[in-house]
């Protein structure tokens, strides 16, 4: 197994932080070397410094994407931190619908991983509108930096074990059994989510209009304080007045420094001017 020197680790983690915002501390050394082991072997590198040179000279972006796939943790599951979905269903969505002249919902899952969160929101919205959706455009934007998870997400195929936490009504209504172990989402839900690759470290967010709701949960736990603050400020800029930001339950904002108004744990709001 290839070992990493302290210097190499620092160089590599600095690179990772610079490009993806992920903050790897010393205790993550074993994890990092473990995850990159096979990659280095497959590329016949004998030292991490060679791999770092390879990364720094990467012109196509391919090396970077390989690294992303290796170092991102894409742990998620249906109904993760379910309180948020209930709050969205019972308070946020009715409010959005009521105050919306254009019949356009703009909701962003800023780190969608394998799509569970975005699809859950899509199902909540589908339930809310029922047959009366009319001209409403309720498509959700779901982004992640990892191509792999996006591909999984687009397929909309989940093991029966994974969809078990969902209400039986949803499983019956929005999923079709594929085989003994897997089910696939109906296209009516799949079409409601626009999956795109997006790096939250982009210096400029390219979106045309401001969002009404942003979900960015359990991503910023991998970021350091500064990166997190910067990102939260960008979210603030890209939210409409009165828009909501949902973060993970372990990602609370510093209430004295943020411009967001605290609504309840891990739910914040951009105040009306």
């Amino acid at each position: 197994m290839l070992k990493i020197t302290d210097q190499e680790f620092k160089q590599l983690t600095a690179y990772i932080k610079q490009n993806f915002g992920i903050h790897l501390q010393a205790e993550k050394k074993t994890m990092l070397t473990g995850r990159l082991q096979s990659l280095l072997l497959s590329k016949n590198f004998t030292r991490f410094s060679e791999y770092i040179d390879y990364l720094l000279n990467d012109k196509s972006g391919e090396a970077r994407m390989e690294l992303v796939e290796k170092i991102t943790t894409n742990h998620t599951f249906f109904m993760r931190e379910a309180d948020h979905f209930f709050f969205f269903r019972d308070h946020v969505l009715p409010e959005l619908v009521q105050n919306n002249q254009e019949q356009d919902l703009r909701i962003w899952c800023a780190a969608c991983s394998t799509g569970e969160e975005a699809y859950t929101l899509a199902m909540i919205i589908a339930d809310y509108f029922g047959a009366d959706k009319g001209r409403w455009d309720t498509r959700i934007l779901a982004t992640d930096i990892s191509q792999q998870v996006l591909e999984t997400a687009r397929k909309g195929i989940y093991s029966l074990e994974r969809i078990a936490p969902l209400p039986a009504a949803w499983r019956n209504k929005y999923f079709h059994k594929l085989d003994g172990e897997n089910a696939v989402l109906s296209s009516s839900i799949k079409n409601e989510v626009i999956f795109r690759k997006f790096n939250l470290m982009e210096p400029v967010f390219p979106f045309r209009r401001k969002f009404q709701v942003i979900f960015c949960r359990n991503v910023m736990i991998y970021f350091d304080w500064e990166t997190k603050t910067e990102l939260v400020n960008k979210f603030y800029e890209h939210l409409e007045e009165g828009g909501y930001l949902f973060v993970g339950h372990s990602e609370s904002l510093n209430r004295e420094k943020t411009k967001f108004e605290y609504i309840r744990p891990a739910v914040y709001r951009k105040s009306n001017a």
């Binding site: 720094l56 990467d58 012109k59 994407m65 982004t143 690759k197 997006f198 209009r209």
Partner: peptide, 15 residues
């Protein structure tokens, strides 16, 4: 050292 390589898509549907 970073060359400017986009790690994100350029098109986001209605967004």
């Amino acid at each position: 050292a970073e060359p400017k390589i986009l790690l994100s898509d350029l098109e986001f549907g209605k967004y």
